[in-house]
Every structure is written in structure tokens, then in C-alpha cells.
Design a protein around this nucleic acid. Structure first.
Lengths: 348, 348
DNA sequence: ATGAACATTTGAAACGTTTACAATGGCGGA
DNA sequence: TCCGCCATTGTAAACGTTTCAAATGTTCAT
């Protein structure tokens, strides 16, 4: 088998120099059609493939972007990657994909690898966007990057997100409006997700506001923290769903948790929304298909991915001021939230 | 700002040659510790980052793999990519991700791009694994690759899959065992998915076997084809769920379709499994959490991704015989399949 | 003292591109 | 005829690595 053809091989075959071959590839307009055709013929005959690594080595830009998400197992992130991949395809960019499994150490390692690959820029969903070594690293190396789903408190980094606190606030408020007074939030561990914390803050805020401004007799907000990848919430939710202090509504910091929570309710013989109301945040596709239809603060996940890439391209092209964009979320009209059970004693 | 440090910069700083720097990076054992430390110090001081593109240009292997899936929006593929990314991380491989949107043209384009990047090998989920130009291309270029979820009929390509026909057969049989006689399959378009066709074949086979071997009074198998990304099945399912010929069971070629089908049944006032039984194939995580719990032929999606990468590594290392692995699927004990409604006239 | 054997290091040539610059040749105007 | 201009093409030097062969220095048995 002959070795892989290079520009040199093609040049020899077509009886031209490699500079001409390069020109045929990159700017065919500056080369007479007759020559272009001869070179193209040679390329086809030899099944020539330009070697991107050679090109990258020479050029300032690599036309590749790095992507880091916590995990692909959560449809939210998968869908955002779908958006990124789509937009990247349209711009002819190569996507290098990594996942952190919610582990800050791995975040740093993954980004480091991506930088070794000399990506032109990065799109990141970090566990915690504040006081993060990854961000310091990227800024010190002066690499364009866009945060996705993170809402950093600092203003000098670009990000695309929904308003996490507001999302949680709104869905909580929707429950309060239905008469719920004893609420708990089900959320991922704060160390592993700043979104989780921001959403919890919104949850608490909604309860406090209802309490103080509207004088509603709200019970103190409660919190049920869940490890990531945890799908079996039965045990963990027991103290929230049974006994005299049982809540009537669960606000979940993600739709995956919400769906798992609904499932857990069922195992306690509690109906949703008859006995317990459940709300989510994210708006994953499957949420709209299940019974009861999940009520959620929906974010345009895929669009956000596309948008993030568009942003990144701007930064790469030298746009100096990093922008932050907070996209609007939307409460879906779901059935998983209903009127609060009226003071009936909880079962069991 | 100083230009990016290279091996040359480091070498100068440490007072050695670039060859020594290279050895410190690649085989520190062959260099006296004193020198290693001096070089390492220089690297740290200069914040040196090895440039993978330089390395790739020189070396035979690039330590990168290309991945092509139809879409990230389907949790099945996302989860498999999760498995791939995880395994790749463990081996220090870079993952280049592309998606085809179920479009054969884009499949070819994406693979071509990946080849231009000189990936060491590919993991592909193709629309149609038989008579596919992508496969011809890869074989002619002698690039290692593994098919994922595809079951090619030819034996000279490596693949990881479950037995699609058998999966469909089993879930169909489960329905027949519950007394169902009028069944339809809901499936994606065959042109865009050979899995879809294979699953349909299994569906038909199960019905024929029940008819001929067990003498069950099976109605002829029916087929409802759905475009990809289609999530609203109400209109499309009308003729299957209503009228005198309404079926009592829907076998769906993917879990996403099954969940959508259950949702559609609801809009016709049909309960699952009371009025209609619904079964899926794939075993996506969310299926186990919804109400009714989805009965599905579960495949170990994430493991399959990991396995595919392991396979690919074997091929890259020069393992000559491509293997095909059919992993066992497992019927999940779901609630979405129940006894057939006994000859009661279908509603409206 | 001599040279063999060895450990350590270096020089230099790739790898496949891009691109600044130079060379070539044809042409029209003076 | 000569000159300059333009269009076309070619030459050669990068880009940042790896790696082979060669050089240097050290140690040790003779």
C-alpha cells in the first residue's frame, strides 16, 4: 500500500509546485481554471486528503473548539451539545468533546488537554463558576471562552444562561399560588453545581417574599440534597413525604430530579398532583410527554448551545467586551402542579 | 505579551537541547533526575504547554478518535457518547464529535472531516450500515472503525449492538402473551435507520410465529412510520388507536417514541396499559421513572459506548480480525404492558 | 595510559502545511 | 527594441514536535 499522499505527491502528479496546490485548496480564484482542474484531477486520482494537523501547526487558528460538560447522561447537557455541534458544523469547526463528571479536578485536566490541542476557544459548563481555577487559567492564557448554564458573579466573562434564581422563584411562586405552604427543594449538591445553589436561593426567596409581602403562612423552606446520577429518591425523600411535617410540594432543581421525585412519590402511594405537587427546571423534551405532564421552568437548551457558539465566534474574531446573555425561561403549562391538599392529615 | 513558549524556549531556559526536553516529556526515566527537574522547572516557569498538533504531525498516531452519531438529542446516543468519552478519558484520547442528523450526505461529510483530522479510528452510528458509502470509504482507506447500534449484514466490520430483531421480537411476544392480537409498530423511517427496519422485522416475526406455531388469531402486523425528531404523535396515531380496527398494543422501535406514544394515547382518553399496552426498545434512564413505568427491551447503552472504544483500541493496535459483539438485552419489568382489553368495543 | 563500554546529550532531519518573496514569461507602450 | 507590468508559478522558510545517528564525557578493566 502506498503511503498517504501529501501536497507534494499531488504537486508532482499535476506537474506544479506545492504552493500552487495549496492555492488551489485555499483560494482557487487566484489560479487559472486550467491549472485548478489539473490539480483537482491529481487530488482525486491520488485520493488526497489535506492534513489538518499540518495546517494547524502552521496557522494561527486551528478552527476547532473545545466543549466541556458535566455529563452527557443528562439530556440538558446533551441537548446543548447538540446545539453546539450543529452550529459548529455550519461554520466548519471541529468539536473536541470532554466531560467532567462534576469533578473540579477533571474540569481542570480536561481544559488543560483542550488547550494543548490549541483550540481556538472553549464552551464550558462548570460545577462552580465563581472562584474557579479553570477560569483563572483561561483568562491568564487569554483564551476566548463562553460559560453555558453558569451564571458567574464576575462580569468579565461571557456566559449564556437563564436566570437560575428567577426560574426557581417563578416555579415556586406558581406552587404558592396554588395554596402550597410547606415546600421543599430537591437539589444536587451545591459543591458540584452553582446552578443548584442559585436555584435554591430563588426558591427560598419566593417563600420569604410570600411570607413577608403577602403574609402567607409559609413553613420554612426545606432542602433535600441529592448526589449526581442518583436516580432512586425513595429513601432520601421519606422524611419529606411522610409524617406530620410532610410537604405538599417539591420544587426540583432539575427536570431529571423532578421525574425521579414523581416516581418516588408514587412508591409512597402519593399521587401527583393530587397529594403532592412537583415542579422542575430545565424543560427537557421528555418532560412534556410524561404523565402527569411536568410543570417546569423551560429553557431553550439547544438554542443556548448554538448561541454559545455564536458568542464564542465573536470572541475569537477579536470582539473585546465579553457579553453575558440571560435568556428568558418560560413556565410550561404542566399538570404536575395542582392545588394544595387541604390540611388533610398525611397518610401513613 | 510574550509569544507562546515552545520546546525551544524551554530548552534555552533549562540550558539543554530540545531533544532533552522531548525526552523529559515522553520518557523521563531515561533522563537523570537532576536534568528532569531543571527542565520541569523551566516548563513550569514558562507555563509551557506541549502542542498536540506539532506532535500529531510528526507521529504516526494522533491519539484521537472520531465519533459520529445521528443526534445528541436522543438520550440513547447521548448516553453512548458518555460511555465513549469516559473510556477515552481513561486512555488519554481526544474525542472529535460530529452528528449527522440522520442524513447520509452529512454522514459522509462528517467522516471525511474526521479523516482529514487523521483520527486513529472511528465509532459510528449510521443510518444504514448496509451498502453504505461511508463504510466503503473507511475500508478503502484502511481506517479502523467500530459500528455502534448498527448490525451490519457483512461480517468484515466490527460492531457493537444488541440484537435488534430479537429485542423487538421479545417485547412483541410479551404483549402477545398478555393476550394482545391486534398490534402495530411505531417506528422511524427505514431509510434513516436500519435499526428501525430490523426491529420491524422482529416485530413481524413474533406475530407470524404466534400465528403459525401457536395458532393465535393474530391480526396482520401494522406499521406507523414517524419522522425523526417527531414528538407529537397524536395525529399520526389516530387511525391506529380509534375506529373498529384499533390496535390494543403498540410496539415502539425506540423508547422516545414509546413515551410519545403513551402521551398520544392519553389525548385519546385511552389509558395505558388499561386500554392500550405500549412497549419500547432502548432502555433510556427516564423510562424507568415515568408512570406507567415503561416496559422496554433494555440495552446497556453506556457500556456499549465504552465497549466500542475498547474494541476500537484493539483494532488500532493492529488486531486484524474485526469482531462483532451482540450484547444481551433485557426486558424490563414495566407496567406499560398489561392484559389485552377483552374484545370490548373500542371507544370512539 | 589506552580503549571499550556506557550514560547522557545534542544536531539535524523529518512530518504536511502556509505564505512571503522571488522568479518567470507574455504583453503592450514607448 | 527595450522596459515595466501583470498574471502565474516556484522557492524556501517557517510552525512545534519526535527521533535517529552522532558526539561528548565518564568509568573501568587492561
Amino acid at each position: 500500500m502506498t503511503p498517504k499522499p501529501t501536497m507534494r505527491t499531488v504537486a508532482a502528479k499535476a506537474g506544479v509546485s506545492i504552493a500552487t496546490v495549496s492555492r488551489v485548496i485555499n483560494c482557487p480564484d487566484e489560479v487559472p481554471t486550467e491549472t485548478v482542474e489539473r490539480v483537482r484531477a491529481a487530488m482525486a486520482y491520488l485520493k488526497y486528503r489535506p492534513n489538518m494537523n499540518g495546517r494547524r501547526l502552521k496557522m494561527a487558528q486551528t478552527r476547532s473548539v473545545g466543549v466541556l460538560v458535566p455529563t452527557m447522561a443528562n439530556p440538558v447537557f446533551a441537548t446543548s451539545v447538540q446545539g453546539i455541534a450543529q452550529a459548529a458544523h455550519e461554520d466548519g469547526l471541529t468539536v473536541l468533546l470532554t466531560s467532567s463528571e462534576y469533578d473540579p479536578e477533571r474540569e481542570l485536566g480536561a481544559v488543560s488537554t483542550l488547550l494543548n490541542n490549541r483550540v481556538d476557544g472553549l464552551i464550558l459548563t462548570l460545577a462552580n463558576a465563581d472562584d474557579n481555577r479553570v477560569i483563572d487559567l483561561l483568562i491568564s492564557e487569554n483564551i476566548p471562552f463562553v460559560l453555558l448554564f453558569n451564571q458567574p458573579s464576575r462580569t468579565d466573562v461571557a456566559s449564556i444562561s437563564v436566570d437560575n434564581a428567577k426560574s426557581a422563584y417563578d416555579i415556586t411562586q406558581a406552587m404558592i399560588a396554588q395554596g402550597h405552604r410547606k415546600l421543599a427543594m430537591v437539589a444536587g449538591r451545591f459543591e458540584s453545581s452553582d446552578r443548584s445553589r442559585q436555584r435554591y436561593d430563588g426558591f427560598c426567596q419566593a417563600i420569604n417574599d410570600a411570607h413577608q409581602k403577602d403574609g402567607a403562612a409559609m413553613a420554612a423552606p426545606r432542602l433535600c440534597q441529592v448526589g449526581f446520577g442518583e436516580t432512586d429518591l425513595e429513601g432520601i425523600l421519606e422524611s419529606f413525604l411522610t409524617g406530620p411535617d410532610a410537604v405538599t410540594g417539591l420544587v426540583c432543581s432539575t427536570d431529571m430530579l423532578a421525574i425521579a421525585a414523581i416516581s418516588a412519590c408514587r412508591t409512597y402511594g402519593l399521587s401527583v398532583p393530587g397529594d403532592v405537587s412537583v415542579g422542575g427546571i430545565d424543560g427537557i423534551a421528555v418532560g412534556g410527554l410524561i404523565t402527569p405532564k411536568l410543570c417546569s421552568a423551560v429553557q431553550p437548551t439547544q438554542k443556548m448551545g448554538q448561541q454559545a457558539l455564536a458568542f464564542l465566534l465573536g470572541l475569537i474574531r477579536g470582539q473585546t467586551e465579553p457579553q453575558s446573555l440571560l435568556l428568558p425561561h418560560q413556565l410550561s403549562t404542566g399538570e404536575s402542579i395542582g392545588p394544595a391538599r387541604h390540611q388533610s392529615s398525611p397518610r401513613l
